[in-house]
């Protein structure tokens, strides 16, 4: 059944869409999830009983580039949302795909980084620093990956015109999630990488 966002919003007490309210609530909740992981890392970042210290292995130029890529994926995401609002299907699909590619580049960078760190002697079980570093950045990486899957799945479904409900709203929701994952990285980049122990 064809249900437009406006029709839907009409029916609610606040005039706001259910899905969007739900999404913002979820993101509020996610703040406490990442807050906990970041705090654990902050507490343990200097505790290296064995293996390399952060200063010894962080590759700031490399991570700067991949952070930049993720940041720019927020721009392409926002362009996708605005194309979706203009009912421009081709533009939407295009920008969503670009966003997914940038996200994949970021995740690829993370895989490379993890491998490099591992080869330099930092395993998940090596030290408190290792455990908390991989847990925090791993959780973030999983979030990005989930985002990529959502983006590509949406494009695939959209190409066959099978999107149930309002299209532009779905894109907007994926966008909110995506930007959130990006702002978490903004924090991680500063607290984890740029500020030394």
């Amino acid at each position: 059944m064809v249900e437009t966002a406006t029709h839907d919003a009409h029916a609610t007490s606040t005039g706001l869409s259910n899905v969007k309210l739900g999404m913002w609530l979820f993101l509020g909740s996610e703040c406490l999830l990442f807050g906990g992981l970041i705090s654990t890392y902050m507490l343990y970042r200097g505790r290296v009983s064995d293996g390399p210290t952060p200063e010894q292995i962080y590759d700031i130029p490399f991570t700067s580039v991949s952070s930049f890529v993720l940041l720019m994926s927020s721009l392409t995401m926002v362009l996708a949302v605005s194309a979706a609002h203009k009912r421009d299907d081709r533009g939407t699909n295009l920008w969503l795909t670009v966003t997914a590619l940038l996200g994949a580049t970021f995740v690829g960078g993370q895989v490379y980084e993890f491998t490099a760190f591992y080869n330099e002697g930092l395993g998940f079980t090596t030290s408190l620093f290792g455990s908390s570093f991989y847990t925090l950045t791993g959780f973030h990486g999983v979030h990005v990956t989930v985002g990529i899957i959502m983006l590509l799945a949406f494009v695939a479904i959209n190409k066959r015109s099978r999107v149930p409900g309002s299209k532009s709203e779905s894109v907007e929701m994926i966008g909110l999630y995506w930007h959130f994952v990006d702002i978490v990285w903004i924090i991680i980049f500063t607290l984890v990488y740029l500020i030394p122990v």
């Binding site: 909740s29 999830l33 906990g36 079980t125 408190l128 455990s131 847990t135």
Partner: peptide, 24 residues
């Protein structure tokens, strides 16, 4: 909404410690 994610973190840390050898 705000408390569940906190125990989620704690539970993950404990699972990682017990099942995958993390040191938390």
């Amino acid at each position: 909404l705000f408390a569940i994610p906190v125990i989620t973190v704690a539970l993950f840390l404990l699972t990682f410690q017990r099942s995958f050898g993390a040191q938390f």
